[in-house]
Design a binder for these strands. Structure first.
Lengths: 215, 215
DNA sequence: GTCTATATGTAGATAGAC
DNA sequence: GTCTATCTACATATAGAC
């Protein structure tokens, strides 16, 4: 409960439906442009034009370029974590965990969301560079590390013989392979001389990472 | 032999030693700054300041920001390819190839070069984002794809039962894991709650990828 | 909340002296 | 080849009308 809500006459009204819709459009546009051009390559003007809004509106809702980026990353992070934790719970309910089922719970929700909604594909590109650029370490730590720790603990429980350092490295390898599949489809197709259906590739990814982690 | 060299009086003399040294300093500085801030985040002025040269000199040797970036990526690409192919030849000379020895020939040279010369670490960061950003697809294709094709063909020969598409995907997964180890040491350490010696990690990486590719 | 107009800084690039 | 001074364009950000 925010301080304003504790009084009879809140100083700030709840945002109108229209304002909320504008805000979503701004974040969708920011997501698309950041995904396409990276943080430095993106401009507020590009985002405004993509959103069909004047430049001032972007600042009004975003509060500056860095804050807007942070909002963009954080917006879907909770939903992604929740989808992963739900998948983990379902996995556990249907029998003992295995390396494959655990990896599957971590990875498949992202692919499922991407298949249903192309905006999640933009988001995947952003996650890829947030995860690898030290500049966004704080954002990555806030948005992704808590869930990563939970899954890493599960891996540790499954493989009590391996050290936490080894499993952490294997987990990072696996995440980077997953992001490669989400973002580098073009390179895989070029090297393979032919495209492959994504569903098979996800199965392949899970098997690949499970075998790697088992090693 | 360039056209100029075919005449008695070449229009352009060979660059002086001093000019060559300046050029190297410019490229080293560009490499460091591009690695640290990405293409759009880097500025010609940052590079000039890092090189200890005036801004005009950067343009003189680089020929514009994009051309300078291209030069920076291409400079070490030939040496890297050669090191990999040499390692492959040595591998082959010392017995029949295996998945592990083949991966080792591809991956270890990069780590060896990085260990000996910190500039190769800057280069690794650049390779990481050139490899994943479609914007630099042409540069990546020119600098890295030829060697990748050679190694992929070797993988195909070792695993005739697998499809080229599957192996291409596995190869891209492996490369992304390698780049993760070269660039995301911080994240691995944070998740692992402790640092690990890099030599062990490279062994681990090779085992991880070999197991994944075998699956 | 929304939009226009503008302030201020800094980017990439180049012309021309040395 | 090297370096200074400068041009032009466009970036972020904001002030203030509606």
């Amino acid at each position: 409960m925010t301080p304003e809500q504790t009084f009879g006459k809140p100083r700030q009204r709840a945002p109108s439906k229209r304002a909320l819709a504008t805000r979503e459009r701004v974040l969708d546009a920011a997501e698309a442009v950041f995904a396409d051009r990276g943080f430095d390559g993106a401009t507020i003007r590009d985002i405004a034009s993509e959103a069909g809004e004047p430049v001032g509106t972007i600042h009004h809702h975003g509060g500056g370029k860095e804050a807007l980026f942070h909002l963009t990353v954080a917006r879907r992070a909770a939903a992604l974590s929740q989808a992963r934790l739900d998948a983990l719970a379902r996995c556990r309910a249907s029998g003992p965990l295995t390396l494959e089922s655990l990896l599957s719970a971590f990875m498949r929700p992202f692919f499922d969301l991407s298949r249903d909604n192309p905006r999640w594909r933009h988001y995947a590109r952003i996650v890829a560079f947030v995860s690898t650029d030290d500049r966004w370490r704080a954002i990555a730590a806030e948005c992704f590390d808590p869930t990563a720790e939970i899954f890493l603990d599960e891996f540790l429980a499954l493989r009590p013989d391996a050290s936490r350092q080894q499993l952490a490295a294997g987990f990072v390898f696996s995440v980077s392979a997953m992001l490669a599949l989400l973002t580098s489809q073009g390179r895989i197709t070029a090297l393979g001389h032919a495209p492959a259906p994504e569903a098979d590739q996800v199965d392949h990814l899970v098997r690949y990472c499970a075998a790697g982690l088992a090693a």
